[in-house]
């Protein structure tokens, strides 16, 4: 792909499933290149067929391993699978080591699987800013199922639930008691709960804690009539995977059954609009505020005024 290939041409090549074209479009979305905007807009208009599965959980809970095993299972059912794996960028250098692929090395040679690693580059919700565009591109390129693995998250990074059709929250044994399980945040967003590493002897306790939380908490699911299942599995022995695939299919059928599906699509669209507007606003603000920043920062540092007033002043000066 020697000199610069226009994005419009890449769109047609990606439509036929050409790997290099898909990869390049995702890179251009990630770089936020103006030249690619039209192409990405066209892709958005022509996408919208895929089932998006979000997988989130604390670091080390086994997300990448689960993604690898789940992808292999879905492939056996004939589904083409795209994987987007997000890992953190360094808060200091901005660089990143993207290591999720290592767990997925058995899948690399399968032409029905596409794996892309992404760094967060300063995003804080568990996704990278270009994750949503990457979902569109893989969807457009004919992947039936797209699995998005978030960074290892804490308790409050719940953006994935707003971007996926089925959200799976992975918990591992030995990381907290039943009080952790009744806190607000991450555990609430699950459409399916998974407890990984169930070959360990303390896994039952975690299963019980999560099930108990759910019995008290029937109202949290976004699909009121959906009974959130808790699946115990072990990537080591393979136990629990058939059940997980079954629950994903049930959730997909349930969600697309009647009205709630439209509600989910509407909430995904609304989130998309919000995120894109935020990006545009932040870019515009970054450019137009640059020349005022130094002096206003100095005044804040000298305590000539308070943060709220000075931030307001900066906004007025920059955005009018």
């Amino acid at each position: 792909m020697s000199p610069y290939v226009p994005s419009g041409e890449l769109v047609e090549r990606a439509a036929t499933g050409e790997t290099a074209a898909i990869g390049r479009l995702i890179s251009r979305a990630e770089a936020n290149m103006a030249e690619a905007r039209g192409a990405l807009a066209e892709i958005y208009l022509r996408a919208g067929r895929s089932h998006v599965i979000g997988i989130t959980g604390v670091p080390g809970s086994g997300k990448s391993t689960l993604v690898a095993s789940l992808t292999a299972k879905l492939r056996r059912k004939g589904s083409k699978v795209g994987v987007i794996a997000v890992d953190p960028s360094s808060p200091y250098s901005g660089g990143a080591i993207l290591g999720d692929r290592i767990r997925m090395s058995d899948l690399v040679m399968d032409p029905g699987v596409y794996i892309r690693s992404m760094a967060t580059h300063g995003s804080v919700g568990g996704l990278a800013h270009a994750t949503l565009s990457a979902i569109d591109i893989l969807d457009f390129a004919g992947f039936d199922t797209i699995i998005v693995e978030t960074v290892g998250v804490g308790q409050d990074e719940v953006e994935i639930a707003k971007a996926s059709h089925t959200t799976i929250v992975v918990s591992a044994p030995g990381l907290g008691d039943e009080i952790q399980a009744i806190k607000a945040g991450m555990l609430e967003i699950a459409d399916i709960h998974v407890v990984s590493k169930c070959d360990r002897s303390d896994a039952n306790k975690t299963l019980v804690d999560i099930k108990q939380m759910l019995t008290l908490d029937a109202a949290t699911s976004r699909l009121p009539a959906w009974r959130t299942p808790v699946v115990g599995l072990s990537s080591y022995t393979g136990d629990g995977y058939p059940e997980l695939v079954e629950e994903i299919e049930k959730h997909r059928a349930f969600a697309s059954g009647v009205k709630p599906s439209a509600a989910r699509e509407a909430s995904i669209a609304s989130f998309r609009l919000q995120k894109t507007a935020e990006t545009l606003l932040m870019d515009r603000f970054a450019t137009s505020s640059a020349r005022f920043r130094k002096s206003i920062t100095e005044r804040l540092q000298k305590r000539e005024s308070d943060p709220y007033s000075l931030a307001n002043e900066l906004l007025t000066l920059s955005l009018g």
């Binding site: 250098s93 901005g94 660089g95 990143a96 690693s117």
Partner: peptide
Amino acid sequence: RTLRDAGMDVIYSG
């Protein structure tokens, strides 16, 4: 590590 610390996105194959 060195490339990460220089601000690059590094994917390691294993």
